[in-house]
Amino acid sequence: MSFAWKAAGISYLKYTQICARAVRNALKEEQRLIAQRRDEQGLKFAKWESGKQGELKPIDSAMGNVSV
């Protein structure tokens, strides 16, 4: 089976992410505001050395986040 998104080089995870976002954005105001909180998920890390927190770095760009 061939899918247009697959041919365009979009992974299944990214495809479902785009679909889910499109669905959330089509909701009525009330439900949309609640649903959109699920949209952005990222990961940050910081290295702790001798009891002090190092620089906080977001590492979501490598996770296939869609920038719209």
Binding site: A20, A26, Q31, A35
Partner: peptide, 28 residues
């Protein structure tokens, strides 16, 4: 539903997993 999978098991049980699902009346 925004997409997902439906698994039809041999024992008459059906599992549907989706990322987002809303009743039609929730859409604008």
């Amino acid at each position: 539903v925004s997409g997902g999978f439906a698994i039809i098991n041999p024992n008459s049980s059906l599992d549907i997993n989706a990322v987002e699902a809303f009743p039609l009346e929730d859409f604008s």
